[in-house]
Design a protein around this nucleic acid. Structure first.
Lengths: 255, 255
DNA sequence: TCAGTTAAAGTCAATCTGACATTAACTGAT
DNA sequence: ATCAGTTAATGTCAGATTGACTTTAACTGA
């Protein structure tokens, strides 16, 4: 649309191309063990460069939308997903990210609940992959996913984003499974319970999960700050950092 | 150079303008109390929009440099500063950040040591300001500074960046003063000492600070991971997140 | 009714934290 | 030369937190 007729010297004068991509995480049962594990959806490249390889969903930034809106819209268009957690990850701008042009990618990361993830418009060119068993992706997308995984792990250790993997109500064991899948280690059920019961943001309901072949566990609900974190909240601002709850409304912010 | 002759419909087709800015922090003694407080350098706008207002140092991204190199170069050119800590803060891309054009700013944040800060090329158009007493800045730079302050505080609470405010060797009391200035609260000297002595990254030297009118305190040295953090290190990657120690070399990374 | 399973609550030692006390080492003033 | 003032450095102790483990509760399916 604009980079096609440019020769090298003209290209020098053009600003770098700007793209938005998103790393989306969801928990799905492992094919083998059945335990929940981290998965992410990728789309197949249908043009050069890297034609045929799998890549993060993404696209150019339209003039009339904010960065987060661009990420949200692109996600919906390419995969059908509407995440309930969406936050900026990092701006990648290395010189040799793309062979044909100077490309700066502003990357977001998102969490979706299992029922949402099940609605993905999967196809020949859109598929879910296990996050820990990725093949070679297009561009530098492998290292971007690694960085997103690192960020996910540190945020989970901090506290209050694990609930975005779960539905409205959940058992404490389900929360523990999220932690175990993300951090990749076993946690003592009794101690984990004690800690969760000590945090004020997670409230017991009067309901119990039915249909299990043992004592029915109580259901809980997350009642912390709106769509996002609790421990270290980001400052109330006009446009920036905020991880908005797009399940309510993409543009409705808390201020 | 490129946005000047464009009418509205042509502008729609152009990619958003890309700029790099940096929030630089240093500790300087307060004019009143003498205690160290947070300061940052700003540059006065010499063109529209916001002519005459103070703003974060920044400028356009050149085609041939990485994002971090662009931040580093721009900093050196506008203020003369060469920070020993430089990390990406956030990409700001709201629709109404600049009146005349769609502008996406990738903002970095930096820490400089007092002796480095003293070398600033101050002038009519470059001045240091107390971070907690800022007037109305150009664009959305007030909220960007607020966000950078929030990030600085959370990173300091975590652990190992406070040393980038200090020189090669330092007393434990000086480290405590950094914490107190950044977190803005009093810390018990005895307990603070106990915690620092427990971390392996901070090693005692055989030297003592001379010239004080009381028992001379021992000097320590930071011996943790290279230029950046220690507690939660970012994954080894080709281009991205890394906060590089530019006092060694901007491009020399650890991998 | 019993075996199997997980929920839920409790125990206990080890560790960590915050508040505070004590002693050490220097300077500057009398 | 001694003393008051100041901060360094170490120690004490009660209360909170953590990790490992035990016990009892509540369900299902054989």
């Amino acid at each position: 649309m604009y980079a096609d007729a440019a020769n090298v010297s003209e290209r020098q004068l053009q600003p770098p191309a700007l793209a938005i991509s998103t790393v989306i995480f969801a928990l799905r049962p492992s094919a083998t063990s059945g335990r929940p594990t981290l998965w992410l959806p990728l789309v197949r490249r249908i043009r050069q460069p890297h034609l045929g390889k799998w890549a993060l969903p993404g696209g150019p930034l339209a003039q009339v939308e904010s960065l987060q809106d661009a990420a949200s819209r692109n996600l919906r268009e390419t995969t059908g997903l509407v995440p309930n957690y969406l936050e900026q990850l990092y701006a990648f701008g290395g010189l040799d990210r793309a062979a044909t042009q100077r490309l700066v990618s502003i990357v977001y990361w998102a969490l979706v609940q299992p029922d949402e993830a099940a609605l993905t418009r999967e196809s020949e060119n859109v598929k879910w992959f296990r996050a820990d068993r990725l093949e070679a992706l297009a561009f530098d997308h492998n290292s971007i996913v690694d960085y997103a995984l690192w960020r996910l792990r540190s945020k989970v250790e901090y506290g209050s984003i694990a609930y975005h993997f779960l539905g409205e109500t959940f058992t404490l064991a389900q929360v523990r499974e999220v932690y175990e899948a993300v951090l990749d280690r076993h946690l003592d059920p009794a101690n984990f319970r004690r800690q969760l019961r000590a945090t004020p943001d997670i409230t017991p309901t009067d309901d119990y999960l039915q249909g299990v072949r043992h004592r029915p566990p109580r259901l809980y609900r997350y009642t912390g700050a709106a769509g996002t974190l609790g421990a270290q909240a980001q400052p109330a601002q006009a446009q920036p950092a905020q991880a908005a709850s797009t399940s309510v409304s993409t543009s409705a912010s808390t201020d």
